[in-house]
Simulated assay, not measured.
Amino acid sequence: MDGLTPVVGYNLAIGVVVSLELLYLLSLEESVTAYRRFVLVTVAGLVLAVIGGPIVELVAPQLVHWVHGTAALLVVYGLYDPVTNDVRTTEWERVLLSEPSRVRRPAGWMTPMDDEILGALHGTELVLTPAVVAFNTGFSRKEVNRRLIELADHGFVEKVERGKYRLTRRGERYLRGQLRSTASADTETGVRG
């Protein structure tokens, strides 16, 4: 061990400051909750590089390349999965927009109109009336009202108050193609089929 040279001291000080900034940024960031594990792996790799590198250089200089290599692997692994998830998400969105039936598994009681009604409610987070949904889908208000009642009975939409509906979490999962089998999910949740 050669001691704390000015270069190693500078690297160590910068590493500590950058690591604290990364950890502070990580604690503030709320939009990455879906990728939390991978962000932590990436930050661990960065912290290992900026703090572990100078410490190992001070204690055992022959191992510094191993530490930097491990840090690089952690960063690459941490960034790999969110990027591939985004690519997969983009592909699923393209399939969903071009041919929703390939992604979704409608139950026997569902009609093609149900997808359009759910689609009109999706993404708005608004409470809509059958008349507004009918206007946006091109179906009659009476047809839409009947289907909304059926969709509410199966838990895809909820009636907020008389004549006003919004999409439920189950409806969102169906639209994303995440419900395995709507018929078996109905019996599990006690929704009538």
Rank of each mutant, 00 (worst) to 15 (best):
P100I: 02
P100L: 01
S101A: 10
S101G: 07
R102D: 14
R102N: 12
V103D: 02
R104D: 05
R104N: 08
R104P: 09
P106N: 01
P106M: 00
A107H: 12
A107C: 09
W109M: 06
M110F: 15
M110L: 13
M110P: 12
M110W: 15
M110Y: 14
T111A: 04
T111Q: 06
M113R: 13
D114L: 05
D114E: 01
D115H: 12
D115M: 06
D115F: 05
I117G: 01
L118M: 11
L118E: 09
G119V: 02
G119P: 07
G119I: 03
G119S: 12
A120Y: 07
L121G: 00
G123K: 11
T124V: 10
T124I: 13
T124H: 08
T124W: 12
E125D: 08
E125I: 06
E125P: 02
L126A: 11
L126H: 08
V127A: 11
V127Q: 01
T129F: 08
T129W: 11
P130Q: 03
P130R: 02
P130V: 05
A131L: 07
A131E: 14
V132P: 04
V132D: 14
V132S: 09
V132G: 05
V133I: 13
A134R: 06
F135T: 10
T137W: 07
T137I: 05
T137L: 02
T137N: 05
T137E: 10
G138L: 07
G138Y: 13
F139S: 01
S140Q: 10
S140T: 13
S140W: 14
K142N: 08
K142S: 09
V144L: 04
V144Y: 00
V144E: 01
N145G: 04
N145W: 02
R146E: 00
R146A: 01
I149L: 13
E150N: 02
E150S: 10
E150G: 07
E150P: 03
E150V: 09
L151A: 08
L151R: 14
L151K: 13
D153P: 11
H154S: 12
G155V: 06
G155H: 05
F156A: 11
F156D: 09
F156R: 10
F156I: 08
K159W: 05
K159E: 03
V160Q: 06
E161F: 03
R162Q: 11
R162G: 01
R162I: 10
G163Q: 06
G163M: 01
K164E: 04
R166F: 00
R166V: 00
L167A: 01
L167I: 02
T168R: 05
T168S: 03
R169M: 14
R169F: 15
G171C: 01
G171L: 07
E172I: 00
R173G: 08
R173Q: 10
R173C: 08
R173W: 11
R173D: 15
Y174S: 06
Y174G: 06
Y174T: 10
Y174E: 13
L175W: 12
R176V: 10
R176N: 15
G177H: 13
G177M: 15
Q178L: 11
Q178F: 10
Q178C: 03
Q178K: 14
L179I: 14
R180W: 15
S181F: 08
S181G: 13
S184A: 15
S184C: 14
S184Y: 15
A185F: 01
A185C: 05
